[in-house]
Simulated scan of single mutants.
Amino acid sequence: MSLPIIPLGDGLEVSALGFGGMALSDVYGTTDPDEGVRTLHAALDAGVTFIDTADVYGTPREGTSGPAGTNEELIARVLADRRDEVQLATKFGIAGSAADGITRGDRDYVRQACENSLRRLGVDTIDLYYMHRRQLDLPIAETVAAMAELVAEGKVRHLGLSEVTATELTEATTVHPIAAVQSEWSIWSRDIEANVVPRAAELGVGLVPYSPLGRGFLTGTITAERIAQTALSRSPRFSEHFDANQGVVEVVREVAGELDATAAQVALAWVYAQGAAFGVPTVPIPGTRSAQRVVENAGAVSLTLSDAQKARLDTAADLVRGGRNFSFSADDWISSGRE
């Protein structure tokens, strides 16, 4: 099976749907590494060849400090046999546990982080290397300059940025071409539409939306009991506003029923339609532990919303209660907190 190929920026071409590897680590519940490997193989078999990970995803090893890297090691098991099928993306910049919120973007750190990721992934080159979060007291140009050295040395093919503002993106592109911006973007998380998405379109930079299914909430399958057992419990959007936000889910379900599609497919189809409306290449990266869900999600690539259905989904954002920054209390952790 194959999916259409989408050109992001800087000549990078990827499958129309990506896979968010974070779901294969213990973030939204306990995971089985062997099942994760099977899911990744199923993704590649379904044509989902754009695989996204980060050095901070996974469980820190006992007696070690710094990013965990175990998610990269898991993905390496698949890359060992199928590297030539994959457009591989990983990230650096969150130093230590994600819960600490410590970021680094200095040259020495960037270079060492890249070497560590290459080793864990078992590859010679990373197709898309993201700055996961920026070090706010360091000019972004300095970090991007360090990343550009990795491109010149052949260790990285393309550069990306995650959760940057429009101004930060513009500054970064004066140093080196940027292939993609990764940020949360979905029916219920639309703050980047104010500045970031238009700027990306203007600069020829692609968008890679993470959590396009609202961390599972928009599928209508996530329960309050499950939320209570995961990191999602830290977010009022998922906890205290769980019942109120069912109104958003209901709109997605209604449209899914009209199209004989899954709620996940509808949520992804909206992201594609929104990207097209802004004129920006858009490749969402939903994550799942289920091989069956990967195949179902791939069906969204060919799903078309009517204008009326798109309009109803657009207005669903008005029903949302609670902000999207669930990982940290600091507003500046996401781009909208710095604009």
Rank of each mutant, 00 (worst) to 15 (best):
I6Y: 09
L8I: 08
G9Q: 10
S15F: 01
L24H: 09
D26Q: 10
V27M: 13
Y28T: 04
P33I: 11
L40A: 09
H41G: 00
A42M: 13
V48N: 04
T49R: 13
F50S: 05
V56M: 15
E62N: 00
T64G: 07
T64H: 11
P67H: 02
I75G: 02
R77P: 12
K91H: 03
I94P: 01
A99M: 10
V110L: 08
R111K: 13
Q112K: 14
L118H: 12
R119N: 13
G122M: 05
T125I: 08
I126E: 06
D137W: 04
I140M: 06
A141M: 03
A145H: 07
M147F: 13
V151Q: 03
V151S: 05
E153R: 11
K155P: 11
H158R: 14
E163R: 04
A166I: 08
T167M: 07
A172M: 11
A172Y: 05
A179C: 09
A179K: 06
S183E: 06
E184I: 06
R190A: 05
V196G: 07
R199W: 00
R199I: 00
L203P: 06
G206Q: 04
G220D: 00
T230Q: 03
V249H: 02
V249F: 01
E250Y: 00
V251Y: 02
T262D: 03
A267L: 06
Y272F: 14
R289T: 15
S290N: 14
D307W: 03
K310F: 15
N325Y: 12
S329A: 15
S336D: 12
